[in-house]
Design a protein around this nucleic acid. Structure first.
Lengths: 199, 199
DNA sequence: GGCTTCCGATCGATCGATCGATCGGGCATC
DNA sequence: GATGCCCGATCGATCGATCGATCGGAAGCC
């Protein structure tokens, strides 16, 4: 008796997401997956392909969502505001969907070559948006950066970390968190602070 | 016929390190481990306890090494130079021993509760050193930081990321890398740059 | 030196358990 | 009676771990 608002295949996806994030892909068995979804391991295969296809589906949906949002954000003209928006988007995504982002970040190596190529291609497109945003900021004199490639990696790693510790009932709420990281990012790229902030 | 300079148990540890870093703990089987070490799966158990104890040993040795070094570094008096030394140590370690650090960072969740407690305790001691270094810098007016807890996490995450991309034959050598990250860190904590660097 | 004893090192065979996946059939609803 | 949904039973493979047994050399004794 499925709920009126949640389809069975959605329940399977949700269970997989939760377990993959918690135990890892290789650490999660088909039978645990079935238990969490309220099905037998045989019924599971009515709603999914292979276990790997389930993982890929999770990664694809997470990455395409982030990528689409970033492609909108990146159209802003001011380099500082554009970086600000990118950081806020990335941090917000990692804070509110930590399981998705952790699976994407941690389980890429669990994929077979073909599937990995697709996922890595999506990730590369996303990182290219950041790279261009930073390059443009440097070219227009808004940022002062030694190595843009290093700064890009440092920025992304530091923002992704949010998925590993932030919770909504901690000291910082989501707005604080985004503001904090946006400030760190501006400093990191050598951009002036907004509104004469000084801390 | 073992080599004169490498004991068998060291070869087991090295093989485990390489495979755990590449395929993950749950993705690595006992037989793969044995093949990589040049032993049968039965002989493996002459040199190790359980597979999990092998993982714990790798993590412990990596974390205690880093912790010992950090405890030396942290005795420096000047907050800016101390942070500089911490960043350089962390980056150098992650760049030159990426497999160890990746296993430590990625496989903590694969541990059982007891083993995880020990490893997390070591990691917490290390992070406390950073926290104190940042607190002291703020108290003495050397750093301007919004949330020290956020800055600490951002710093550590961004520096740890080095283990995921840096190679010795890329554009940056190890010195460049450390300098680059030390500069990013100083900016992040709102400390003045050294030697009137400006980029 | 010769003989015995012992032990570290190694392996083939195998354990019970679990892995991911499949099959055929039951039970609804239409 | 066809279609969609579901599961018990089962597949071959592999999992982590252990077993008994073998081999070669070091140590102890005469």
């Amino acid at each position: 008796m499925p709920s009126a608002t949640t389809s069975t295949s959605e329940r399977v996806q949700d269970a997989a997401l939760r377990l993959f994030a918690e135990r890892g892909y290789h650490g999660t068995g088909i039978r645990q997956l079935a238990d969490a979804a309220g099905l037998s391991s045989a019924s599971l295969y009515h709603y999914m392909g292979t276990k790997e296809e389930l993982l890929v589906a999770i990664m694809r949906s997470s990455l395409t969502g982030l990528l689409d949002a970033a492609e909108q954000v990146v159209q802003m003209d001011d380099p500082g505001e554009r970086l600000d928006a990118l950081v806020r988007l990335h941090v917000r995504t990692h804070a509110t969907a930590p399981e998705q982002t952790r699976v994407v970040d941690d389980e890429v190596n669990a994929l077979s070559a073909g599937a990995r190529a697709e996922v890595v291609a999506l990730r590369d497109r996303y990182e290219t948006l950041w790279q261009s945003a930073l390059d443009d900021g440097v070219a227009r004199g808004a940022f002062r950066i030694g190595s843009v490639a290093v700064a890009r990696r440092a920025l992304l790693e530091m923002c992704s970390g949010v998925a590993r510790w932030w919770t909504p009932d901690g000291e910082l709420d989501l707005d604080d968190l985004q503001r904090e990281y946006a400030g760190l990012a501006r400093r990191l790229v050598g951009a002036p602070l907004r509104h004469a902030e000084s801390w």
